[in-house]
Structures are given as C-alpha cells and as structure tokens.
C-alpha cells in the first residue's frame, strides 16, 4: 500500500511538472505577442512621423519611406554644401598657419547653439533683415522695430 501511494505521488508530481511546462510555454508565447505588438506600434508611429518630414505626399509603405529618407538626407547635405560654398571659397591665401586656414570666422561663419537657432529659423527672415536697411534715422528705426516685436 505504501509503495502504491508513493507511485501515485510520483505520478501527481510529474503531472504538475507537465502543467508547469505548459503554463511557461503559454506565458512565453503571450510575452512574444505582446512585445511584438508594442514594437510594431512603435515602429509604425515612427515611420509615419518620418514620412511627414521627408515626403508628406509620397508613398506610405515602410520601404518607400526609408528610400525617400535616404534621398532627402543626401539632398540636404548638398543644400548645405551649396549654401556654404561662398564662405568656403574666400580662403585667405596670405596666412600660412593651418589653424587659421581651417578657422570658420575667417570665412564669415560661426557656431551657434541649436537652442538659439530654432527661434531664428521659425521666424520670417525678412523681419530680421528689415531693420538693417534703415539705420540712418534712430527714431524711425525705433518706431519701425516696435511693430515687428
């Protein structure tokens, strides 16, 4: 009788082990599905955001958005190169020091923190350049500056 009872206990233990394995497998599957769903949602949101910046009226599938992003970044690099070319061309050959040769200030460029640049970029360029054209009369410049601000 004792041995038969022990056998029954062994069987119960094995059944418990099997059930634990099954539950662990289920949890693993559920974790995978949950994480995969979250990842898909995150990636989808980011693809949409990138599309809005790169090609708002272009195709919406992931491969097309990535391709447009590649082309757009290369285009922006070319734009920066073209817009900065006039400053780079004015290299003072008279100075022989390498440090001065590679300095930005001799070329009319400077580095500004992006925080200060965002406000400038958001505003209309014409508003910034207008006061400079009328520096002769201080009173007029003051009156002209007030409506812009």
């Amino acid at each position: 009788m004792e041995f038969s009872r022990d056998a029954g206990m062994m069987m119960e233990n094995k059944r418990n082990v099997c059930s634990l394995g099954e539950s662990s497998i289920k949890r693993h599957k559920s974790d995978l599905s949950f994480s995969s769903k979250e990842r898909k949602d995150k990636v989808g949101e980011r693809i949409s955001a990138l599309q809005q910046i790169v090609s708002p009226y272009g195709k919406t599938d992931t491969a097309s958005v990535l391709l447009d992003a590649m082309h757009y970044i290369e285009f922006l690099h070319e734009q920066v190169k073209v817009l900065s070319a006039p400053y780079l061309q004015t290299v003072p050959d008279a100075t022989q020091e390498e440090l001065e040769q590679y300095s930005l200030r001799n070329r009319g460029l400077c580095l500004v923190p992006m925080e200060n640049t965002v406000g400038v970029a958001q505003s209309n360029g014409a508003d910034i350049w207008a006061p400079v054209k009328t520096p002769l009369s201080p009173a007029f410049s003051v009156t002209s500056q007030s409506p812009f601000r």
Partner: peptide, 29 residues
C-alpha cells in the same frame, strides 16, 4: 533597435532642415 534608429533619423532630418533654413536666410540677406 529599429525604433531607436528611426528616432535618430527623424532628429537628424529635422536638424538638417534647420541648418538649410538658417543658411538660406543669410542668402536672402
């Protein structure tokens, strides 16, 4: 991570757009 990679791409594109705009303003002036 794909999501982090996309975040970097978005931030870089925004930066380049800002840079081009600032240089363009100087051209206008």
């Amino acid at each position: 991570d794909k999501a982090s990679m996309l975040d970097e791409i978005i931030d870089y594109v925004k930066f380049l757009q800002l840079q081009v705009k600032v240089l363009s303003m100087s051209r206008l002036g």
